[in-house]
């Protein structure tokens, strides 16, 4: 049996459109999700017990269940409960945002914890007001320290986003599956799709390593 990879080239426009959907969805959910994750990380160390409780429940639930079930729930179950349809785009965006929020909140929580207590002592000794301590010392360092892990989180999101093909969103995975069944060449098409995912994800993974090294060097004391 011979494989004809050249035939996949004929579908490059469709694949590119699929990739576009995947990248757009990833960027949208990365932005919304990390904003949600940051607020959640603050809620988890809040002095208000209710905020701690609800944010912990949210994080643990979304980390502890498969993304596919979350997606199906928002796409198939929520419309039944609400009695109105939810588009696959909305369901996918909500699911991946909530998932990313849960994951990145842990990233932010770890980076907030990494601020050395000695620096807070110094803040007090310098008489810095509490608000200044947060805006000028704690937050900038927490955000800088979070960047490498956040990028890793985004790479995971990029890959996990293939799941949205299951609710019929025309992302790269969905387009690949369609082409492969239409022309009955799963080996060629799905291999090419995998390579496309890899070609996008790999430089990001490498970038994480480089940025991490630079960041650690800069914030070392």
């Amino acid at each position: 049996m011979t494989y004809d990879f050249a035939v996949v080239l004929g579908y490059w426009e469709a694949l590119l459109q699929g990739l576009e959907v995947t990248v757009e969805l990833t960027l949208l959910c990365a932005a919304l999700g990390s904003a949600l994750g940051f607020v959640t990380s603050l809620a988890r160390v809040s002095p208000v017990r209710f905020l701690r409780w609800i944010s912990t429940l949210y994080v643990e639930f979304f980390r502890g269940t498969p993304v596919l079930i979350q997606l199906f729930w928002f796409f198939f179950c929520l419309p039944i409960i609400l009695g109105s349809d939810i588009s696959n785009f909305i369901a996918a965006t909500v699911t991946l945002t909530l998932y990313t929020g849960a994951i990145t909140s842990e990233t932010f929580r770890a980076s907030l914890k990494s601020i050395r207590p000695e620096e807070i002592d110094a803040c007090i000794a310098l008489g810095l007001p509490r608000l200044t301590q947060i805006t000028n010392i704690v937050l900038p360092q927490a955000l800088l320290r979070a960047i490498p892990t956040l990028l890793s989180n985004f790479v995971s999101l990029f890959k996990e986003s293939a799941l949205v093909s299951a609710v019929g969103m025309a992302d790269l995975m969905f387009v690949g599956q369609n082409i492969s069944s239409n022309i009955a060449k799963p080996v060629e098409v799905l291999t090419v799709v995998a390579v496309i995912y890899f070609v996008v994800a790999f430089p990001l993974t490498r970038a994480v390593t480089v940025i991490e090294r630079k960041m650690l060097a800069k914030l070392a004391i």
Binding site: E119, A122, A125, P129, T132, N136, Q141, L219, I221
Partner: peptide, 27 residues
């Protein structure tokens, strides 16, 4: 009252000059 500690307490994300000027400006 000013204090200097055993452990390094400079703010690593700020330059030396920014470390010096932060408190006078904010306080």
């Amino acid at each position: 009252i000013g204090m200097v500690f055993q452990h390094y307490t400079l703010f690593p994300h700020l330059t030396i000059l920014q470390n010096l000027t932060l408190a006078p400006r904010k306080v």
